[in-house]
């Protein structure tokens, strides 16, 4: 799309684009292509020579049972975070959207967690659920439940899912609320006159009308769970105990930065890029449709 009235200037548009294009080339395109290049090469021990090895790095990581485990954990983690944070957000948004007293106050009190870094949210959860200093962590142990997310893998995964979802509810809440407010009142009033109760009204009318928002949030939450929750996991469990909370991004970090294995890390980066490109393409295909409908 382009405007009808434009300026005719030969050099200026390039100068205007230069800073953005420079940053994109140097810090996005070049490193991404480096990752692709490295992913099909193996370097010798001194980093002097590289050999082209086709997809050897990919078959190596994909046949590594640890990596498959990491894939599974990432899938469980991302889906749980998306579903949990969406369900809670939808419930709160549906209630805050109703004409009740103090709706504006509730909204303010529910959106601020958006401002917290995932790592800070994780630290707040640690203050409460740490088995030694956290009040609820100690309570669980006092009640005879053997709670220590630093030793028990399932508990660790639960803990990072809860901390990551807790932070993401506010984002979903804002979008569900915007989606709810876009539903014409007349539709809901018509259902009201037909005698449908509030719960039935919600499931038969409101929820289907919210499906574009729900789908959009599902993708955004998956991307969030994939990428941004690195901070949550790094702050709470460091991927442990064992590999119980090691997600794909955490593994890339571990292999590339901690273990300095460039080939394996690059192949993983390329796989992640593919996943991300698929997710964002789905999102944009869908956004295009939404624009058409409105």
């Amino acid at each position: 799309m382009q405007r009808r009235v434009i300026f005719d200037n030969k050099l200026l548009p390039y100068l205007l684009l230069a800073p953005q294009v420079a940053v994109t080339l140097i810090f996005f395109i070049w490193p991404a292509s480096q990752a692709v290049w490295q992913s099909v090469h193996i370097q010798d021990a001194f980093g002097l020579r590289s050999e082209f090895v086709w997809f050897e790095n990919f078959t190596a990581i994909l046949s590594d049972p640890n990596y498959v485990g990491t894939l599974r954990i990432t899938a469980v983690f991302s889906l749980s975070v998306a579903v949990l944070s969406m369900a809670v957000a939808l419930l709160l948004a549906a209630l805050a959207d109703a004409k009740i007293k103090g709706a504006a106050v509730y909204k303010t009190l529910l959106i601020w967690p958006y401002a917290l870094a995932p790592a800070v949210a994780a630290v707040l959860w640690m203050f409460i659920f740490n088995p030694e200093i956290g009040s609820l962590g100690r309570l669980l142990n006092a009640m005879g439940y053997n709670w220590d997310y630093r030793l028990n893998g399932d508990q660790a995964l639960t803990m990072v899912i809860l901390a990551a979802s807790w932070k993401q509810v506010s984002y979903n809440f804002i979008f569900f609320l915007a989606g709810l407010q876009a539903i014409p009142r007349s539709v809901l009033e018509a259902a009201n006159i037909d005698g449908a109760g509030p719960v039935r009204r919600f499931w038969t009318i409101t929820f289907p009308l919210l499906s574009p928002t729900t789908f959009f949030l599902l993708v955004v939450d998956m991307v969030y769970a994939f990428c941004e929750t690195f901070g949550t996991i790094h702050a709470l469990t460091h991927g442990g105990p064992g590999k119980a909370t090691e997600t794909l991004i955490f593994r890339v970090y571990q292999d590339g930065v901690v273990n300095n294995d460039l080939g394996a890390s690059s192949a993983q980066s390329v796989l992640l890029m593919v996943i991300l490109i698929v997710l964002t393409t789905i999102q944009f295909r869908f956004v295009e449709r939404k624009v058409h409908y409105s």
Binding site: Q2, R3, I6, F7, D8, N9, K10, L12, P13, Y14, L16, L17, Q20, V21, T24, L25, F28, I29, W30, P31, A32, Q34, A35, Q38, V223, F226, C227, E228, F230, I249, V252, Y253, G256, V257, L262, S265, S266, S269, L272, M273, L276, I277, T280, T281
Partner: peptide, 29 residues
């Protein structure tokens, strides 16, 4: 938005794909 010049859409798409490459997926390079 306000100029018409060669490679305009190339630049536009180049900027657009950065959306798909958050720093987390290309940390090492």
């Amino acid at each position: 938005a306000f100029f018409r010049f060669p490679l305009r859409m190339v630049f536009f798409w180049m900027i657009f794909i950065t959306l798909m490459l958050p720093v987390e997926v290309r940390i090492i390079p």
